[in-house]
Amino acid sequence: MRVKPSSAFALALGSGLLMASCGGSGNSSTDNAADTLAVDTTPKETEVLNVGGKLFSIPSPVQTALAIRKAGLKYQKDMTAPLEKGDATVGKVAQSALLGIYGADMAYVTVHKDGQRAMATMQAIEKLGGKLELTNSFDKALLDRFKSNLGSEDSLLQFSGVAFRAADQYLKDNQRDDVSALVLAGGWIESLYLTVSDPAAAKDQALVNRIGEQKTSLNALVELLEASDKEKAATALVTSMKELQKLFSGVNSTYTFQEPVTDAAKKTTFINSTSTVTIPADQLTAIVAKVTAIRNMMLA
């Protein structure tokens, strides 16, 4: 998410927040500005508050898992990451990426109705979450809810979505955007890996399209990783993601606007625009190889 226009934003930020803290969002927004001008208005504040930077929406791993299931690809539990890896992994970058990988794996095993593996994966997530100080999001209570609802795919997906969102909020609240971005990167790579590692995927046009449709998300992810990696701890990953980005530049897409239709009673707008995506075969092969290499790097 980007805020525009940014001129005087930092200046207004202090006044807006102080005003809001004193009674919310009233109309007279600028009245107190003079009082708060003493607050340093350098961009530091916007960094502290994680405002003015870019936030992006990265597709949920659940959506990819559902697409895999819809394509009828065989469920292969062995393709998911080893759960014991969580105990051995050290360092913020590796742990964060692995948390994202486990999140994607959990979506995959859940939509394939492997409740036992889903539970084991959630336990691994809870342990890893502890290492990353995310016990507010992944805790025993979540495990208990999970255990009680193992037969309900919808509930498990709901619980995990809520937990990952809470973790994302906590990380952003605590200026740990680097961890947030790495979790997203891990989840995104694992989703793509689970899609492409079955050779049958290349024969399913819907799945091939879905791979190509990740181009914009990859661009966003690279930007997000670069912007948040202030400690330059994830340089190798960023470099690899940029190499993947180059391969995705060969993906071509078209878009044709069609008038949307809104059903106000159902609070729904039907978006009917059309689009196509094309990936040359050699490009797809290169993407598969690169995704696998990045995933291996994350798990190394």
């Binding site: 805020v3 807006g16 508050l49 936030l55 929406s57 979505g161 809520v162 990952f164 969102r165």
Partner: peptide, 10 residues
């Protein structure tokens, strides 16, 4: 199903 992300801006 929540997408697992939190978006905010001031």
């Amino acid at each position: 199903i929540p997408d697992g992300q939190f978006y905010r801006a001031l």
